[in-house]
Write a protein that binds this DNA or RNA. Structure first.
Lengths: 153, 153
DNA sequence: CTCTATCCGATAATGAGTATCATTACCAAC
DNA sequence: GTTGGTAATGATACTCATTATCGGATAGAG
C-alpha cells in the first residue's frame, strides 16, 4: 500500500484520492474510464446523472463507453463511495459521499427540476432519533423537499 | 365547503369519495377504469406501482388498459390526491394523499426491497423548521430511511 | 336522442439502465 | 522485459417502465 502523498495543496483532500484508495484496496484496477468518472464526480458541484457525467467526459476529449460510466457508478455506490439522489424524474443522480459522513439533502423544484443542497443539524438529529426507535437497521437516509425555487415561485 | 361526515364508522371516511368529488369538480368524467383505480388505491395498505395496481384490478375481474392506470395516476398526482413514492428501484409507487395532511414516510430495505411506513412528529417539526429557513417554497417532502428490515438484518 | 368533448384500450415509441461478449490492458510474478 | 490470468472496456442488443398516438367508444348536457 503506497503512502498517502502529503502535498502542499490544502484545497484538495480530494474525494477521488480517497475513492481511488478504496478501490485499490478492493482489488480493482485503474483505467482511463474509471479515472475519468472519478475526476468528473470530484469536480461536480452537486449531483449528476450517468449521462451527464458521460457527456462531460466526452466533451473534455476522453472517449469512454457509457456502459463504463454505469458500471463505475454501480461499483462506487456498492462501496458507499457515492450517494444516489433520486429527484423523482426517473433519472438516478450521483454525488461523492465524503468519508467523514458529511452530507446534505436536496431541494427539488417541481417546475424547472433544479436541485439545490441544504444541511440542517436538527433535522439530522431527528432522523437519528427515529432510526433508533424503529425495528429496522437504518444505514442511510434520503430527504427531498419539493416545491418551487426562487425563480419559479 | 361541505361539512365533514361525522359517521359512526371510524374505518371508512373513504379517500376515494374525496377523490371522486375532487375529480367531478374538475369536470372529469366517471368511468369503469377510473373507478377501478380509485378503488384499488383506496384498499391498498401502503404504496403500489402502476403495474401492481393494474394487476390487482385485472385479477379482480375488471379488464382495463394499463394506459388508463398511468393516465389516472398522473391526473390524481397532478391534483395532489395521491403521493408518489420513489424507492430507488426505478419504479414509481403511489398511495392516497389524505386531505387532512396526514402522511407517513418509508423504511426501504436495501436487500429485499420491502417498504414499511412510519410516522414521527418531531421529524415533521424539524422538516417544517427547515422549510421556513430556506429560500425556497416547500410544498412537500419525501423521506426514506434505507437499510435492512428485520428479516434481512 | 343526438352530439361532442372526453376517455378508452391497443400498441408503437421512448429512454434509462442492464446484460452480453469478444477484445483490451493492468499488474504481479517470473 | 515478457507473460499470463483476469478484470475492465466498449459496442450493442435487450429489458422494461413509462409516454405518445389514434381510431373507436361513451358519458352526459341539451
Amino acid at each position: 500500500m503506497s503512502a498517502e502523498p502529503h502535498h502542499h495543496r490544502p484545497s484538495a483532500p480530494s474525494w477521488s484520492t480517497h475513492a481511488d484508495e478504496a478501490l485499490s484496496r478492493r482489488g480493482s484496477r485503474a483505467s482511463a474510464a474509471r479515472n475519468a468518472v472519478l475526476a468528473a464526480l470530484d469536480s461536480q458541484a452537486c449531483c449528476a446523472s450517468a449521462q451527464e457525467i458521460h457527456a462531460r467526459i466526452t466533451t473534455d476529449g476522453t472517449a469512454i463507453g457509457i456502459a463504463s460510466v454505469y458500471r463505475t457508478l454501480e461499483l462506487l455506490h456498492g462501496l458507499a463511495l457515492i450517494t444516489r439522489v433520486d429527484t423523482g424524474d426517473g433519472v438516478a443522480r450521483y454525488e461523492p459521499a465524503h468519508p467523514n459522513g458529511e452530507h446534505h439533502h436536496h431541494l427539488v423544484c417541481n417546475a424547472c427540476g433544479a436541485v439545490e443542497a441544504f444541511h440542517d443539524g436538527e433535522l439530522e438529529a431527528a432522523i437519528h432519533a427515529v432510526a433508533d426507535r424503529v425495528d429496522f437497521r437504518v444505514d442511510a437516509h434520503d430527504i427531498a423537499l419539493r416545491g418551487a425555487c426562487r425563480r419559479c415561485r
